[in-house]
Amino acid sequence: ETQAGIKEEIRRQEFLLNSLHRDLQGGIKDLSKEERLWEVQRILTALKRKLR
């Protein structure tokens, strides 16, 4: 995994995270989306740690 590859994956995950946040802010309670949001946040945290 290169730095560029990790950064690209971070961009993808952040896009997905923002999309999930928008969907959930629409007021629709969706447990699967909430679980996915937490999963994406965990992935992002792990990726950012790899960059250090």
Rank of each mutant, 00 (worst) to 15 (best):
S32W: 10
K50N: 04
E1A: 10
R22L: 11
L37H: 07
Q41R: 11
E8S: 06
K48A: 03
E34D: 04
A4Y: 07
R12N: 06
E9G: 02
S19V: 10
H21G: 05
H21C: 15
I28E: 11
I10K: 01
E1M: 11
N18K: 12
R36C: 06
E39Y: 03
Q25F: 05
Q3M: 14
I6S: 01
V40L: 05
R49S: 13
R52Q: 11
I28V: 15
S19Y: 06
D23A: 12
E8V: 03
S32E: 13
L44Y: 00
T45E: 15
E14P: 00
T45C: 13
K29M: 09
W38R: 14
L51M: 04
L44P: 00
I28C: 12
E9Y: 05
L16C: 13
L31Y: 08
R52W: 07
E9W: 06
R52Y: 10
L47F: 01
R36S: 07
K48V: 05
E9Q: 09
L44I: 14
S32D: 12
H21M: 15
Q13E: 04
W38T: 09
S19K: 11
L16R: 02
N18I: 13
W38I: 14
E1F: 09
N18P: 00
D23W: 09
R12V: 05
K7P: 02
E34C: 15
K33Y: 10
V40Q: 02
R42W: 05
L51Y: 03
L51E: 01
N18G: 05
K50I: 15
L47M: 12
R49G: 08
S32M: 12
L37F: 12
K7S: 06
R52K: 11
L31D: 10
I43K: 06
G5P: 03
I43F: 08
K29N: 10
K7G: 03
I28F: 07
I6K: 01
V40S: 01
R22Q: 11
R42V: 06
L17D: 02
L47D: 00
V40D: 00
K48M: 08
R42L: 10
I10T: 01
V40Y: 03
W38V: 13
S32L: 13
V40W: 02
F15Y: 11
I10S: 01
L24C: 05
K7C: 15
Q41H: 07
Q13M: 15
E9K: 05
R22V: 09
L37I: 14
Q25E: 13
T45M: 09
H21A: 12
G27S: 07
E14T: 07
A4K: 09
D23L: 12
I28D: 11
L17F: 09
K29H: 11
K29I: 11
R12S: 03
R52E: 12
K50S: 08
Q25A: 13
K33D: 05
R42G: 05
L44W: 00
G27F: 15
E35A: 11
S32R: 12
S19P: 00
R11A: 10
E14Q: 08
E9C: 14
T2A: 12
E14H: 08
K50A: 11
D30M: 02
T45R: 12
S19C: 13
G26S: 14
W38E: 11
R12W: 06
K50L: 13
R22C: 14
Q41L: 15
R49A: 14
N18S: 09
H21F: 14
Q3H: 09
E1D: 12
Q41I: 15
Q41A: 08
D23K: 05
E34T: 10
R36L: 14
K48R: 13
K48W: 10
G27V: 06
I28S: 08
L20Y: 02
E1P: 05
G27K: 04
G26Q: 10
E8A: 12
R22M: 11
K7N: 06
R11H: 04
R49N: 13
R12P: 00
L20R: 00
N18Y: 11
E1G: 08
D23G: 04
L51W: 03
E39C: 06
I43E: 07
V40K: 01
L47A: 00
G27I: 06
E1C: 15
R11K: 09
A4G: 06
E8G: 03
E9F: 04
L51F: 04
Q13I: 15
H21Y: 15
K50P: 00
I6W: 06
L31R: 13
E1Q: 12
H21K: 15
D23R: 03
E8D: 09
E14W: 08
E34I: 14
Q3S: 07
K48Q: 06
L17E: 08
Q3G: 04
R22W: 05
G26C: 13
N18W: 10
A4H: 09
R49K: 12
G5E: 14
T45A: 14
E1H: 10
A46S: 06
I6D: 01
K33H: 07
A4M: 06
I6E: 01
R49W: 04
L51K: 00
D23E: 13
K48I: 11
L16I: 13
G5A: 14
D23N: 04
Q41K: 11
K48N: 06
E9H: 13
E14K: 04
L20C: 13
G26M: 09
L31M: 07
G27Q: 07
I28P: 11
K50R: 09
D23I: 07
H21E: 11
L17S: 02
R22S: 08
R11G: 03
R49E: 14
A46F: 06
L31K: 13
G27P: 09
L17V: 09
D30W: 03
A4D: 09
T2D: 10
E8L: 07
E9S: 04
